[in-house]
Design a protein around this nucleic acid. Structure first.
Lengths: 271, 271
DNA sequence: CGCGGGCTTGAGAGATATCAAAACTCGTGG
DNA sequence: CCACGAGTTTTGATATCTCTCAAGCCCGCG
């Protein structure tokens, strides 16, 4: 079991706050040094958030929506909604390097708030600054909208998952997704990764009560597929887990596209 | 009850195939005549699709994803997934004027196919042509990504809806959403609008069996909230329906943003 | 007239929520 | 070092909802 501080993703971030962002975007987009410098310069200020506290900028009062774009630097956040019944519904998890907002142009009247899970550091990027950076560095634009498409694909998969599977399969699918997104090898992982979600969090994300979530986890444990306890997720049988969850990680991948360069050229020429 | 042909949205489209698209985008984006001309010129070819037939371009074979962007001209389409159990899960409905694809830059490895509901006409726009149009007409770019954000907001709402409400409330919420998106006055509507979905379609969208969907509809009928039969949806008590569904249409709206012009200027200056 | 798709009804099985409470963990303060 | 308290995990019993299976009805269409 790793100490809780490991959620804070190490110390190197102080010098390069956007390190995880650049690393994530680099999986699908070829950045030049100018792109990296521009990304690094985007951090306006940093927000610290505490467990289950909604980001102030997202509160109902400021509905005008022209606040900043948030990027997770360390820790996890989630987007959530409160139902009239008083239950909380988690709609998305954002991990270090993830962008939380993809409504760059839009002034939305209502959007779900974002909350921290455990101690979290978040960068706030002004929309205008990001737009300007995109104009100068087309690869940043491509990367941002590619991430938006990935976010949408994940959301669709959650819609499938939450609506239509048995409890233990829902849970298994979510755990598969998170394991891959954490950066898991996509393989059996006896050592385990630190995992900040409580059973109640998992339940709110899967549309289950925490009680039933607990029983579903016990199912997975009994089946020898994984062990989830004390802040650590250990996958004992990755293939088996994927099979029971019907998990296909393809939706989480963005193919690196060699047309990138060509299109960037078009953009520059068109101005 | 209106005849089925009314789903084909009239005859005027022949001359202006993108008329519904321009009308929808104009709710939130100020287009100049150049923007409208450019939008009109984007239609590559038109696809006709038949009920429950997936668009060929979306079939498993062409996974490379660099096919066209689809825009619904008339009729409805849906994005769907087939589960291992053999059940169909509907993830989104696209109405006339809606854009079906927001992965403009991305080469996705896997994406859910799109199918027609009833007779449908669809425009296919090449990604490259759309990108070029965006470079020349920044308002088109803003409008496209604003629609993407709206699409994402709808998807999040579906995730809430499907996972966490009783059957009759799920159904009520979906019907509220569709009534607004159809262009309903957002009010009691005795005349009714033509409504192409079967009870099985509604069930697949809400995560219910068609049998249970039928019972939920009967609940709504008995409560005097609406009547849904013979291809027509009549809302008898809009306020009551919204109340039982906890429906707040705010997520369907994009505020018209006067910063539009300013940002467009930035874009032109930056080239 | 027969046929098929969609709609409706009924009965029973299975899964999940709800209610209630105990056991456990961990940080905090005395 | 220990007691305490809040939050988390676990267990049990019951109620409710939704699915499944089976079948009949309705209506437009060939």
């Amino acid at each position: 079991m790793r100490p809780l501080e490991s959620f804070d993703s190490g110390a190197g971030d102080k010098g390069q706050p956007m390190g995880m962002l650049v690393r994530k975007l680099s999986r699908h987009t070829n950045f030049g040094s100018g792109d990296r410098v521009a990304l690094g310069a985007l951090v306006g200020h940093q927000v610290r958030a505490l467990r289950h506290r909604a980001l102030a900028e997202r509160d109902a009062g400021s509905g005008s929506g022209s606040g900043p774009i948030h990027v997770v630097l360390s820790g996890w956040t989630c987007r959530f909604a409160m139902l009239p019944s008083g239950r909380r519904r988690i709609l998305a998890f954002y991990l270090p390097g993830d962008i939380c907002d993809f409504d760059l142009f839009t002034t939305r009247q209502l959007d779900q708030p974002i909350a921290a899970i455990g101690a979290t550091r978040i960068a706030a990027i002004e929309r205008r600054a990001l737009r300007q950076a995109m104009n100068r560095q087309p690869q940043i634009e491509r990367a941002y909208w590619s991430e938006a498409a990935l976010d949408a694909a994940i959301q669709r998969t959650w819609t499938i998952n939450v609506g239509h599977r048995a409890a233990d399969r829902r849970l298994a699918h979510l755990l598969c997704e998170l394991h891959v997104r954490i950066g898991g090898t996509g393989a059996t992982d006896q050592a385990g990764v630190s995992f900040p979600l409580t059973q109640a969090d998992l339940g709110d994300a899967c549309g289950l009560t925490s009680i039933h979530t607990n029983r579903a986890i016990q199912e997975l444990r009994r089946a020898g597929l994984l062990d989830l306890s004390a802040g650590t997720l250990r996958i004992h049988d990755w293939a088996g887990l994927c099979a029971m969850a019907s998990f296909d990680p393809a939706y989480l991948t963005i193919a690196r596209d060699d047309e990138d360069e060509e299109a960037a050229g078009e953009r520059r020429a068109a101005g």
